[in-house]
Write a protein that binds this DNA or RNA. Sequence first.
DNA 1: TATTTATGATACCAAATGGTATCTTATTAG
DNA 2: CTAATAAGATACCATTTGGTATCATAAATA
Lengths: 106, 106
Amino acid sequence: METLTQNAFRALADPTRRNIVQMLASQDMTIGELTQRFDMTRAAVKKHLTVLSDGGLITVEARGRERINRLEPKGMAPVLDWLSYFDRFWDDRLAALKSAVEGDRK
Amino acid sequence: METLTQNAFRALADPTRRNIVQMLASQDMTIGELTQRFDMTRAAVKKHLTVLSDGGLITVEARGRERINRLEPKGMAPVLDWLSYFDRFWDDRLAALKSAVEGDRK
DNA sequence: TATTTATGATACCAAATGGTATCTTATTAG
DNA sequence: CTAATAAGATACCATTTGGTATCATAAATA
C-alpha cells in the first residue's frame, strides 16, 4: 500500500488531473459533466478520478444513478506539509508567515 | 516541450526524488555521495537528477571531475503558485495570511 | 415493463518510467 | 605516463501509466 503523501503527489503529477482539480474547485461535477470538458473517453476520466480519490483529493457522493465528485480540502494536507518543510528554501516570505501561524496555534 | 509547472510536479511525484530533495536541503552533494545513500546504481540516481533538473528544482555545478548538485529554490515557484491558487480550499487559514501578504506587496 | 441514461469494470495497447549493465570520457593521483 | 576515480551515454528490460473499446449494472423515464 502506498502512503497518502505519495498518492497525493502522484495524483497531482498529471496535467489532466490538475485540470480536473481546477474544474472541481469551481463546482462539483459528475463524470459525465467532466468528460464533456475533455477530449477523452469517460473510462479515461474515470481512471483519473480513481487516482485523485486514492490521493485523497476528491470524494464521491452517490446521488441516484449519478456520482457527484467534489474536491476534498483535507487531501492536500500531506502535500502542503511536505512542501512547508522546505519553506526556507522555496520562499522565505511564505515561511515567515507560516511560522507566525504555528505560533498562533500554540 | 513540457512546461516548467508540469516538469516540477512530475519531478516531485517520485519518492526517491523527494528524498533527494530532502537530502540536498541539508547539503549539496555529488552523484557519488547521493548514490551511497540509496540502494540503486549511480545511473539510476543520475536519471532522477536529470528529472529534477528538468523540473528546475536543482542546479549542477561542475567542479573538477565532480558535479555538485544543489537545490534551486526558484524551481519550486510554479508548484507553490499552482497550489496557492487553491488555498481557499486546501487551508482557509493559510489563505487569509497569504492574501494579507499580497496586500502588503501592493 | 421496456428503454434510456449514468456509471462501473475489464481486457487490451502503446508509450513512459524506473531500473540495470556496459562502455566512454575526463580529471586527479602515483 | 599510467592508474584510478567521477561522471556521462546508451542499450536494454519489466512495470506502470494513460488511453481505448467493450460489456455489465443500476436508476430514471416513456
